[in-house]
Write a protein that binds this DNA or RNA. Structure first.
Length: 482
DNA sequence: TTTTGAGTTGTTCGA
DNA sequence: GTCGAACAACTCAAA
């Protein structure tokens, strides 16, 4: 059924870019026409189908990709339906000779891709998959015993110095691939955008797509990187890289980031602490670590990595979970974070830890409830990172926070939002309180509250629980599973 | 096989 | 106000 002049299909998934895209690059290198396709099949990622914010991002990324490909005379075909069936149909209709893609590593898509690969290989197609989203393949990095690393520091020591990422591949040259016509549905037909338009805040904060990724990275490298080690802890500063959604959807590759940063810095920045380039690349290695862990421990999105946590006395409390989700806990720094998330699809990393600690330790609601909420609301929702982050906070994951590390929301607020800028932005109803009372309004005198025009329980909630009491209860709960 | 050192992001208490 | 110790014991990774 295949035709010697038939196309090679490039199956786009979470690699929505032209530069350093191995599947696209090698397809364009061949002397076949290239047919790029995106197949929307969220049910194949169950139970982690992309959430609302993620779908918003995807919509705009696909539009950007389609436009970018057009400049190379390539027409992105959009389809929906089960991947294997859809690809079978397209292969048949186009008499394709090859199918290329970049690998993914989460359990659901991995299983699907294996099935797809087997099917088309049996059909005699040239099926090739590439590494487009990691610095190393998960199976390449192992301890001397041959096991996957479960502690970050030895992992980082093992990878940082020999990491010699191949030069990022260039954008395929125009004219290398002849356009190939095939019917497509509209991106709009995928219905990725919310029915109620809640995305205004996200729209303002982000520009999805490969161009957006490069602009954001350039800005980071030029102006935010130098202050990164210090500044990244202060949510009002916006000193983080903001690369997470772009990395998740593959709009920039980690290899590109790695090589761009190292070409201007000596490689010993990786071995000593305090250098901003090294500190940031270390964070990129955390992303790598998270993806390797998910590959080796595919049960962890739902299950504790540490077995003994099965007896942890989690509480079920729908009402409290809702208060947390809506940013109505009465703890300003927590509420600020949860509202930033709801409005912009993003939350500053420092604040993610604070709100996560509050859910898991103060409320002792199961970490998976937090993971699910983040999954639906974050534009950078990523199964590997989300799983590692929540299990780390809860204490049940790899290299986890020790049981006694319980964030104090008032202290964290005073330390990392000393001028109250972040809290005032997201919790405007208490913005007139003086700095001294901003992180704990219930401790202000009635006089101070009155002057600020704040009536607790009316304009802004009383604290939903008492932090120091809950801290003690959390410590007790950990005693039980010792 | 056994031993040894070490482990992202914190808080509280008492000197 | 500042500083160091305590907060458990365990698991991992390497020697």
């Amino acid at each position: 059924m295949s035709d010697p002049k038939g196309p090679i299909i490039v199956w786009f998934r979470r690699d929505l870019r032209l530069r350093d895209n191995p599947a696209l690059y090698w397809a364009c290198k061949s002397d076949h026409p290239v047919l790029p396709i995106y197949v929307w099949s969220p049910e194949e990622e169950a139970p982690w189908e992309p959430g609302g914010a993620s779908k918003w991002w995807l919509h705009h990324s696909l539009a950007a990709l389609k436009k970018d490909l057009q400049e190379d005379n390539l027409d992105l075909v959009i389809a929906k339906g089960p991947s294997l069936e859809t690809l079978k149909r397209v292969v048949k209709e186009t008499r394709a000779v090859g199918l290329f893609w970049n690998r993914l590593y989460d359990p659901a898509t991995l299983a699907r891709d294996t099935e797809v690969k087997t099917h088309f290989k049996d059909q005699g197609l040239n099926v090739r998959s590439f590494n487009g989203s990691l610095l190393y393949e998960p199976w390449e990095i192992e301890t001397k015993e041959g096991n996957p690393y479960q502690v970050f520091t030895p992992f980082w020591k093992a990878v940082r110095m020999d990491l010699d990422p191949a030069e990022p591949l260039p954008k395929p040259r125009k004219g290398m691939a002849e356009g190939f016509e095939h019917p497509s549905i509209d991106i709009d037909d995928l219905e990725l955008l919310p029915k109620i338009d809640w995305a205004g805040g996200i729209q303002e904060a982000w520009e999805p797509g490969e161009d957006g990724a490069r602009k954001e990275f350039d800005k980071f490298q030029e102006s935010r990187l130098e202050d990164y080690p210090e500044g990244r802890d202060f949510p009002a500063k916006q000193a983080t890289s903001r690369m997470s959604p772009y990395l998740h959807f593959g709009e920039i590759s980690p290899r590109t980031i790695w090589s761009k940063l190292l070409e201007e810095a000596p490689s010993d920045v990786l071995s000593k602490r305090g250098n901003s380039t090294g500190e940031f690349l270390r964070e990129l290695a955390w992303r790598e670590f998270a993806h390797h862990l998910l590959y080796h421990f595919p049960q962890t999105p739902e299950n504790n990595l540490r077995e003994k946590f099965k007896d942890f006395p989690w509480r079920e409390d729908e009402a409290q979970l809702k208060q947390w989700q809506k940013g109505q806990t009465g703890y300003p720094i927590v509420d600020a974070g949860m509202r930033e998330l709801w409005t912009t699809g993003y939350m500053h990393n420092r604040v993610r830890m604070i709100v996560a600690s509050f859910l898991v330790k103060d409320l002792r609601i199961h970490w998976i409830e937090g993971a699910r909420w983040f999954w639906d609301t974050l534009v950078d929702a990523d199964l590997a990172n989300n799983t590692l982050g929540w299990q780390w906070t809860a204490g049940c994951g790899a290299d986890a926070a020790p049981y006694f590390r319980i964030f104090n929301p008032m202290k964290q607020g005073e330390k990392f939002d000393p001028g109250g800028e972040y809290v005032r932005k997201w919790v405007p109803e208490i913005a007139s309180l003086p700095d001294a009372h901003l992180q704990a309004p219930w401790e202000a005198s009635s006089q101070v509250l009155k002057e600020a025009g704040v009536e607790l329980g009316e304009d802004y909630p009383e604290p939903m629980v008492d932090h120091s009491e809950e801290r003690e209860k959390a410590l007790e709960a950990f005693q039980k599973i010792k």
